[in-house]
Amino acid sequence: MGLPNALLNIDRKFIFAGVALSIAIPLLNPIGFGTSVTRQVQNVYDFVEKLEEGSTVILSFDYEPSTMAELDPMARTLLKHLFRKKARVLGMALLAGAPGIAESILQEEADAAEKEYGIEWVFLGYVPAPTAAMLRIGEDISMVYPTDQYGTLITEFPLMRSVKNYRDIDLVISLSSTAMPQFWAQYAHDRYGAPVAVGATAVEAIRMYPYHDSGQIVGFLGGLKGAAEYETLVGQPGEGIKGMDAQTIAHLFMVLMIVIGNVGHVIERRRGKSS
């Protein structure tokens, strides 16, 4: 009973070590896998591509540092695309740990695209009680955000003078590792008619399919692969594409472990039958 038992009961420490190596080695020695583009990501890209100059887009950073590895590349590429399309960006955050991330990414991408604060982008900052905030924006955004992140009255920004509620918003993008995108779809889209696009972690992306098929969201980017696909479409390779090598090898390692477990299982079952 030695071999099947060994195959069926590999110590989790060895599995953990295998995962660590299968991620670390490709990150240090890139292979250069490409990636095809899925319908869901293509739809987001097409929607942004069709935005007219001066369109207003809410980019909501609904994630904390924990998931930045998956969601930061999406935020950066989406911002590059939005700024290239000359869309005006309202950055906001609905989780307490998000402003620190949002601030850096918005500032860096705006600087790279030479966009002026208050005219082409603003960062409204963090507000608590996310669902209440989403609903309140449907009535009047200034009731949720009387000032921006830095305490300036939003009425002082030329960009905000033409924005009152979702009617003045051409697209809402939520980047999240929780159910925030669902709330955005249910409140901003279903209740107020604003188009919603989503960037979700791979774990959460799976639940976006029904919302996409029912038209409640225009499309979604799922996990690092979603980021890599969007980078491919925008033509700006970044962390998403770089991470694809590691993800590929890690998935192959997991499949290998599953195969090993099943080989052990089959041998054990056959031995059981024959005895």
């Binding site: 904390e64 924990s66 989780l95 307490a96 740990g97």
Partner: peptide, 9 residues
């Protein structure tokens, strides 16, 4: 029955 943190992870 205590509070821990609002941070997910």
């Amino acid at each position: 029955i205590h509070y821990v943190t609002y941070s997910q992870f």
